[in-house]
Design a protein around this nucleic acid. Structure first.
Lengths: 181, 181
DNA sequence: CAAACTGTACCGTCTGGACGGTATAGTTAA
DNA sequence: TTAACTATACCGTCCAGACGGTACAGTTTG
């Protein structure tokens, strides 16, 4: 057996701090120094795990893909239907996936091309699942409702967290029921 | 009386260049140097009109408020109804208002608090108009659909402009009709 | 068994460049 | 004449990234 090298605790802390800063203060302020400080790690330590900022971004996007994949499965299997599951999950919930999505959104906003590509792929996944549930004619309407929720999460999530959007979900689900008939 | 000094042509050019850069390359890359270059103006000339970057942002937000106000009036007066007008106008159209919205979105993303406040106010305006049209129960559903369109404009507008979203509007309008019954 | 060695996981400092902003002297057009 | 510029030089700050170290767990060798 090989002597296990000690666990890289810093790596996860850094990635989490990076996401948190992206969400709370935007890409501009998510500097390497700020990330390191938030993670309780030295800058040198950060760069040991992620040789440059792009590597940090890539790790975040990989995590996003993983989580989005899992979510797509859960969506397909949801008893309430994919559409309702989607709307319900589109409201800001501080789940790992929501965090990854909003964090990645900050990068897409700064014109990071690969992030945009990945987002497009995830949205296609969502659209497929929703279309399988409510039919292709209504799928876009549902998708855009969810996107609207994310849009608002993006604009409001920050130093002042708010629970306002949660109340809207019932309204949206009611509208969904109405569309379904 | 003074013989009118010549018109500040640069001012408008700078503001437009600022918006364009925000839309196409994000806040990060919309530096003062880049804006001046794009506007075909010297950096000194830019700073003559806008003493600092914050002044540039304020001018953009003022423009946004003006355009949004005009649009709210048009929305209220639209023969097809406020909701349909809203959805139709939410798709990316390269209109002055759309440009101002997406440009401002880039600032909100970077956690610019006042931009976020102004956005919230505009959305409240929209919601009121839509509620007056389709009733309060469905207003949020319509609003979020429109927001979803903006969300997608934000993610895709850039070096690669696309006309894909326009096709979705009919689908959304059909869903709206269905909700209305 | 222990000294010598190896690789991993960090820390702290430094540098080169970009960016926001200032300053200032000169130029053009109404 | 004066507002509306151009052109350029410069400053302080901040940031990404490079670099040289340190601490320590496990591994090998005498």
């Amino acid at each position: 057996m090989d002597g296990m090298p000690r666990k890289p605790v810093a790596r996860e802390a850094v990635l989490d701090a990076f996401a948190t800063l992206l969400i709370e203060v935007g890409e501009r302020a998510a500097t390497l120094d700020a990330v390191a400080r938030k993670a309780g790690v030295s800058k040198g330590g950060l760069l040991y795990h992620f040789p440059n900022k792009e590597a940090l971004i890539q790790a975040l996007l990989d995590q996003l893909d993983t989580l989005a994949g899992e979510d797509a499965d859960a969506m397909a299997a949801a008893p309430e239907g994919a559409a309702a599951y989607f709307i319900r999950s589109s409201v800001w919930g501080d789940t790992p996936l929501d965090r990854a999505i909003v964090a990645a959104t900050r990068l897409a906003e700064v014109a990071h091309e690969e992030t945009r590509r990945r987002f497009a792929a995830i949205q296609r996944q969502w659209l497929d699942e929703i279309a399988a549930d409510v039919g292709p004619a209504l799928a876009k309407a549902v998708l855009y409702m969810g996107d609207g929720l994310y849009f608002n999460a993006m604009l409001s999530v920050g130093p002042v967290p708010e629970g306002g959007a949660a109340a809207d979900v019932d309204e949206l689900l009611a509208a969904l029921e109405r569309l379904r008939r």
